[in-house]
């Protein structure tokens, strides 16, 4: 088995590489193909859960349960992600209504989360927990959560909700993930997952600098702990674009500018590239 998870190694490159591989496999749309790939690469039995546009593989063996979230886009195109990160309507910071709202407002009454990501997690939650809960319970297996891009955002939010359901998350690895909430939300994540979340960010990748409504005052924040890979300066690129703004508000043409800068750095966001750069 080429890839395995090492329980007592936190933020270990071997675990990061294994999780990056799982994220790569999560892009396989055909559940049967994905299941055989997880069997081949990890020796784990995997099941695809797919609701609307949100997909997650839950893989398990005697020791581990691994939830790997797929991004909204295929690894070679990003079009699906554009709306997620730069459209006002889904970019709002909110607390959803219902039980999911109670689980997330537990982060603090000032915590707010990305509306679109929250909706995607809500879509997939019931079938997801129906698989994860019995899998973790039988034999007290360790729960790992991972995801690339949009999948990384969902992985982080799912990890929070698993913990609120007393399904203790062992470690979280995200790759090129955008931001999911405001400062109060991320302070709570830092407290909850200190030493258990590892957020891999390619320094030239723009996605981790998003979402944003206005480049002047962005309320989105990241949680700890950032693990830098590669070379480049995504912040300088965004700051350069901010200089083009007249009103501070993202105009349609500025959104296109950000997006073409993003696409010129497609390789920096690619999950395969992330996996190869982890050392």
């Amino acid at each position: 088995m080429p890839f395995e998870l090492i329980p007592d190694a936190y933020g270990d490159p071997r675990n990061a590489i294994a999780c990056a591989m799982a994220c790569e496999l999560a892009y396989l749309r055909d559940g049967a193909e994905g299941a055989s790939a997880f069997q081949r690469e990890f020796g784990m039995e995997a099941k695809l859960i797919s609701v609307d546009n949100t997909q997650v593989y839950v893989a398990q063996n005697d020791q581990h349960v691994l939830a790997a979230f797929r991004g909204s886009e295929s690894p070679t195109s990003l079009d699906g992600l554009k709306d997620w990160l730069l459209t006002n309507a889904v970019n709002l910071l909110i607390v959803p209504e219902g039980r999911i709202g109670t689980d997330f407002i537990a982060a603090g009454v000032g915590a707010r989360f990305h509306k679109g990501f929250m909706a995607a997690l809500a879509d997939v939650w019931d079938p997801l927990i129906a698989v994860v809960e019995p899998a973790v319970a039988s034999g007290d297996r360790l729960l790992w959560v991972t995801g690339h891009s949009l999948g990384g955002a969902l992985a982080q939010l799912a990890a929070w909700r698993f913990n609120r359901k007393a399904l203790q998350v062992h470690q979280v690895y995200t790759f090129g993930a955008p931001m999911v909430g405001n400062k109060a939300a991320n302070d709570a994540f830092d407290k909850e997952f200190a030493g258990h979340i590892f957020r891999y960010v390619h320094l030239a990748d723009l996605v981790p600098r998003l979402p944003t409504i206005s480049l002047i005052a962005n309320e989105y924040r990241h949680c700890q702990k950032e693990m830098g890979v590669g070379e480049g300066d995504a912040q300088a690129c965004l700051s350069g674009l901010a200089g083009k703004m007249v009103q501070g508000i993202l105009s349609a043409s500025l959104i296109d500018d950000i997006w073409s800068a993003m696409q010129s750095r497609l390789s920096a966001h690619d999950i395969v590239n992330y996996r190869k750069l982890i050392k």
Binding site: G98, G101, T102, I105, V109
Partner: peptide, 15 residues
Amino acid sequence: YERMVEGELHLTLTG
């Protein structure tokens, strides 16, 4: 922060 969720009162004072 208080919400009725499925007929139950959920109250949050955290933070």
